[in-house]
């Protein structure tokens, strides 16, 4: 068991090294120094308290999305629709804020309602993908992808239509909400400790749900073998729906944080691609909750650190995305190689 886990880790570290190697080659090909690029990215994400706080700003939604995806993956579902669930969370949060804009309720209560609203919005959108899967026979990958497009279209419609700025039709987004509707941020930093706490609570919740509960056990049974679980008397389609709802609520919370603590309004790209990035994180950690925090932090650091590349080295920031993509590819490849060769050796 220990040997297996050590081998596993070694494979993943090997994949990490290989990915850095590939990106180094790309950098050398364009005449840039790989060491300088990695150093700038490292300093750009951990070089100061302010920079680390920016990393955390990206880490919070990414971790929430990853936590949610661990639940759907456990149930054997590819919830590509998570991106749209983040968007719907943001839309629902914006809706709640707008509803209470002129009310006399204490702002703290409005923020709480807005975040709960976001979770509900995300959960309902996920339920839609779930219903399509369970009752419509639509594969959740295709259903989710379709719903992602609908979610984007809905955002654009709202920004251009009912929620537009007076006299303006622009993708710039809705009018920013007043300061008191913002989740409280740390002084001089942009990170909200409340958001961070919510994200950590989310991953801890998922960890215990999957490792320590009867619910989690049955969910994994459904994920491992749907038919066998059904024959054993587990209400399988209900468990699929539960997993969609939980994932949607967590993704919705990510969208809510994007509105309540980062952008303070609705913008077209409010989900910032965290849904898709979360899928990569979940695959990279082989669906194990314990690794979610360090790997999500690593990905967030790459995103923030890569901002330095165009400023200091005139390189494109998308290098971070290349590194992330290559890394996931190598890890999956390593997994495949191990199953093919490692498995044969063991038997």
């Amino acid at each position: 068991m220990l040997k297996g886990r050590l081998g596993n880790l070694a494979y993943q570290l090997g994949a990490l090294l290989l990915s850095f190697g590939v990106v180094s080659l790309i950098l050398l090909a364009v005449g840039a120094s790989p060491m300088e690029a990695f150093r700038n990215m490292f300093n750009g994400s951990f070089g100061s308290m302010r920079k680390f706080a920016e990393v955390l700003v990206a880490f919070v939604p990414l971790l929430l999305v990853t936590a949610g995806l661990l639940v759907t993956f456990a149930a054997g579902l590819w919830n590509i629709g998570v991106e749209g669930q983040v968007v719907l969370g943001a839309i629902a949060t914006t809706w709640v804020y707008r509803f209470f804009l002129d009310s006399s309720l204490p702002p703290a209560l409005v923020i709480l309602l807005a975040i709960l609203g976001g979770m509900l919005g995300g959960a309902l959108w996920a339920a839609l993908a779930g219903l399509l899967k369970v009752f419509g026979g639509v594969n959740e990958i295709f259903g989710g992808l379709g719903l992602n497009f609908v979610a984007t279209a809905l955002t654009i419609y709202l920004i251009f239509g009912p929620w537009k700025r007076p006299g303006v039709a622009s993708m710039s987004g809705t009018v920013p909400f007043p300061d008191e509707f913002s989740l409280p941020l740390l002084t001089d930093l942009r990170i909200s400790p409340w958001a961070l706490a919510l994200a950590l609570m989310g991953i801890v919740f998922v960890y215990f749900l999957l490792q320590g509960t009867y619910f989690g056990l049955r969910l994994k049974a459904v994920g491992k073998n749907f038919r066998a679980a059904y024959l054993l008397g587990i209400p399988t389609w209900q468990y699929s729906m539960y997993s969609f709802l939980i994932c949607g609520a967590l993704a919705g919370a990510a969208g809510a944080i994007q509105v309540a603590a980062v952008y303070h309004r609705l913008i077209p790209s409010i989900s910032s691609g965290y849904g898709y990035l979360g899928l990569m994180v979940a695959m990279l950690i082989n669906y194990q909750a314990v690794w979610a925090v360090p790997v999500a932090l690593f990905f967030a650091a790459l995103n923030i650190g890569s901002i330095q590349l165009p400023i200091l080295m005139k390189l494109d920031s998308s290098l971070a995305g290349v590194l992330q993509g290559v890394l996931v590819l190598f890890v999956l490849l390593g997994e495949g190689v191990r199953q093919k060769f490692g498995g044969r050796a063991n038997s």
Binding site: S48, K51, R190, I267, Q308, I311
Partner: peptide, 20 residues
């Protein structure tokens, strides 16, 4: 812009330039 630099805000990016 939010499409090209997802998850960032202009004031945050301005602070990166100040840091330089």
């Amino acid at each position: 812009n939010p499409a090209d630099r997802q998850g960032t805000t202009p004031d945050q990016l301005a602070e990166e330039l100040v840091a330089q």
